[in-house]
């Protein structure tokens, strides 16, 4: 299949489009669970590498000439299945993964020894982990347990893959489903809960500053991105369990504005499929001004959060439906994965 046949650019949707850059086929993998990118430095050269995860291993792919990729390292994790890769935003030569059966039971760091080049693993946290997020400045936040027994912990990560210090955050009496750093406020973190509240923490003191209800029309909201502007807290949310609404269909993402002083909020924008297309949100990721989601139809949809519209659609190709979508470290590349382990990289421009 040629690149031209696979590249789908629906230019009538907006000014931006997706162009196929390369394809990785992992011959040993038939159980792709996640894909991500990481900066990797070796011999004085830092490159953007692709990470692919199947249930029993995580592989790092280095770029070659002419859009080809070479599998450079594979960490084997045979005892507990890999559930997801946890991107650490400003970290080089370090991979964070979450492992478990139905829910996350372990968080591990994967690295390559600078002394002898051997592949290493370092256990960071164990427990019934409900939510985990890599934060800026080499930190990792995770919540374990539920309700009154919930523990929320920030771990600072050293280059050698060890934890430097651990700090606890005050737990809300509700299970946390997802975290997001607040852009524009260095020490602020938000999380969405199973009771559909948005919680704001001060990362320095660990205290909960506010708990605000997201709204009864939006069950089990997942926060993807948060930013503070003009005294309001804007949060990009997805609602995997939302019921379809006659007026706006079933949006994949919404932006809601919260006033943290009064705990009142209002809907700002929603991001639905263009007319004539259908499919519910399955999973997705937001980076910068771009949001991408895999839909039940096996199509990937991309939205521009500033334009407020869907800018590209990537229908299933001849190899099958899409099951994973991730933005690269730089939001100009989109990684699209299929169940058989195939990963396609698209330029989004």
């Amino acid at each position: 299949t040629t690149a031209e046949q696979l590249a789908v650019a629906l230019s009538d949707l907006g000014d931006r489009s997706l162009h196929l850059a390369s394809k990785l086929k992992n011959p040993s993998s038939s159980c792709a669970v996640d894909v991500s990118t990481v900066w990797w430095e070796s011999a004085g050269c830092t490159e953007l590498c692709i990470l692919t995860a199947c249930e029993t291993s995580v592989s790092l792919w280095k770029p070659l000439a002419s859009s080809q990729w070479r599998k450079a390292y594979t960490w084997h994790l045979a005892e507990i299945p890999v559930i997801q890769i946890v991107p650490l935003p400003d970290v080089c030569n370090l991979v964070c993964v979450a492992l478990g059966e139905l829910e996350i039971g372990e968080i591990r760091l994967l690295l390559c020894s600078s002394e002898d080049g051997s592949l290493k693993q370092s256990l960071m946290r164990t427990g019934n982990i409900k939510a985990v997020l890599g934060l800026t400045n080499r930190r990792l936040v995770s919540s374990s347990g539920a309700l009154q027994d919930q523990q929320i912990e920030i771990i600072s990560v050293l280059e050698a893959g060890r934890s430097k210090e651990r700090q606890s955050l005050m737990p809300p009496e509700e299970t946390i489903l997802a975290f997001a750093e607040v852009e524009g406020i260095r020490d602020a973190l938000v999380g969405t809960t199973a009771m559909n509240n948005l919680v704001i923490w001060n990362l320095k003191t660990g205290q909960i500053l506010k708990k605000m209800h997201v709204g009864y029309s939006y069950p089990a909201s997942i926060c993807h991105r948060a930013y503070s502007d003009s005294g309001l807290l804007f949060v990009v949310l997805s609602h995997p369990h939302a019921k379809e609404n006659e007026s706006c269909g079933n949006p994949a993402f919404r932006v809601r504005a919260f006033n943290p002083r009064t705990a009142r909020s209002t809907g700002v924008m929603f991001f639905s499929l263009p007319p004539g297309h259908s499919g519910r949100y399955l999973e997705g990721e937001v980076k910068g001004g771009s949001a991408a989601a895999v839909l039940t139809s096996g199509t990937i949809a991309v939205w521009d959060l500033f334009l407020g519209q869907c800018t590209a659609l990537l229908p299933p190709n001849t190899d099958g439906k899409w099951s994973l979508v991730r933005w690269s470290v730089t939001d100009s590349c989109l990684l699209a994965g299929q169940k058989d382990g195939s990963v396609y990289m698209y330029h989004y421009s």
């Binding site: 001060n202 205290q207 005294g231 504005a257 006033n259 943290p260 002083r261 009064t262 009142r264 209002t266």
Partner: peptide
Amino acid sequence: CSESDLGPISLNWFEELSTEALP
């Protein structure tokens, strides 16, 4: 969204809520 919907807005909400949350 207007201020009347959301109530009085403060540009320093994070600092104010952090001070109020101190024991």
